[in-house]
């Protein structure tokens, strides 16, 4: 167990190293990406360019620049952005994280509740029009591009019907900190929550339904029914609990990925300054320090979540342990 933990940790570090090298290499392979002229400013004279190149160390060999950047990012934590030069990237990400957390956890609440409801209902009424209708709605949710849905939501709530009683409560786009106004926080996020949750409701509802259907054929379910428990009770008390294992591990991975910036499109469409949007901004401005920091941040989340899920499997299921 300890061995596998150690090995896993080693592999995780290797993965993170690989990602950082990849990003660094990609950045310096892009023509026009050389940050010197952007830092020096338009029209800067060649002498000024030279001084900036030297002061920022862009004239040093790439491996050394890489090492310096990693040191500044992880050890001294004083890596500063190239576009907003006073901005340290680590605190910048720490400030963006609560916004993403607010968005993702609210959406997660909605999608877990809604998908448990639809999945259980569909499995309970298997083969009926309700089942087919719910699963079709789930598929529809999976098929809608999230940015498009967000745009249409904005069109409806911010422009077309903003002045009517239906949506006049929707605040302008952007994030309102919980500490500033809890009700404002809720009103600003409720529509992004729903937009982000739609696809996951579809996915999770379908996964849960098929697990429940598979589980209902198992012996312990038959036993429970034979004992005379009501079908709905069996479904909820026994079936749901068993099926939750897949559901929870899937949830762990998705949640981690969204926290790491996977909700980029939702954040961009609704103007929420979260980690995903920060990464997008960094990429569109080719701001290497910020790209590096935000991608490493999301990679850490995803890799750790993967490792935790794998470890939990190893601990729970001896077959997987032998298989590795």
């Amino acid at each position: 167990m300890l061995m596998s933990l150690g090995r896993r940790l080693g592999q995780t570090v290797f993965v993170l190293f690989g990602i950082s090298v990849l990003i660094f290499a990609v950045f310096f392979a892009t023509p026009g990406a050389d940050p010197t002229s952007r830092i020096a400013g338009k029209n800067a004279s060649p002498e000024t360019m030279e001084r900036v190149r030297h002061e920022y160390g862009f004239d040093r060999p790439l491996p050394m620049q890489y090492a310096t950047m990693m040191k500044k990012l992880f050890i001294t934590r004083d890596l500063a952005s190239y576009t907003n030069r006073g901005q340290l990237v680590v605190p910048e990400i720490i400030q963006a994280a609560p916004i993403t957390l607010s968005l993702v956890s609210g959406a997660a609440l909605i999608w877990v509740a809604a998908s448990v409801l639809t999945g259980t209902l569909a499995a309970g009424f298997r083969g009926t029009w309700l089942d087919r209708g719910l699963m079709m709605a789930g598929l529809l949710g999976i098929s809608i591009p999230v940015f498009w849905l967000g745009q249409v939501a904005n069109l409806i709530t911010q422009a077309r019907w903003h002045d009517t009683w239906m949506f006049s409560w929707v605040p302008g786009p952007g994030y309102i900190p919980f500490t500033e106004s809890p009700s404002g926080w809720f009103r600003a996020l409720i529509i992004p929550w729903m937009v982000l949750a739609v696809m996951f409701i579809g996915i999770y509802g379908r996964v849960l339904r098929s697990d429940l259907v598979a589980v209902s054929g198992e012996d312990f379910m038959r036993t429970a029914r034979a004992k005379g428990l009501s079908p709905s009770r069996v479904m909820i008390r026994h079936g749901l609990r068993t099926s939750m294992i897949t559901f929870v591990s899937l949830f762990g991975l998705d949640f981690a990925q969204l926290l790491g910036g996977g909700a980029l499109l939702t954040e961009v469409v609704f103007g929420l300054q979260g980690v995903g949007r920060l990464t997008y901004q960094a990429l569109s401005g080719l701001d290497l320090p910020l790209i590096m920091a935000s991608v490493m941040y999301s990679a850490v989340f995803v890799v750790l979540a993967n490792a935790v899920v794998d470890l939990v499997y190893v601990a729970l299921d001896p077959r997987v342990r032998d298989g590795r």
Binding site: K42, N43, A44, S45, E47, T48, E55
Partner: peptide
């Protein structure tokens, strides 16, 4: 401070081109 306009706008001040090379 390596201002972008140091070269194009101000290097014609006497002593400016020296400043540009050794700020």
């Amino acid at each position: 401070v390596n201002s972008p306009t140091a070269g194009p706008y101000f290097s014609h001040i006497i002593g400016g081109s020296l400043c540009l090379h050794q700020p």
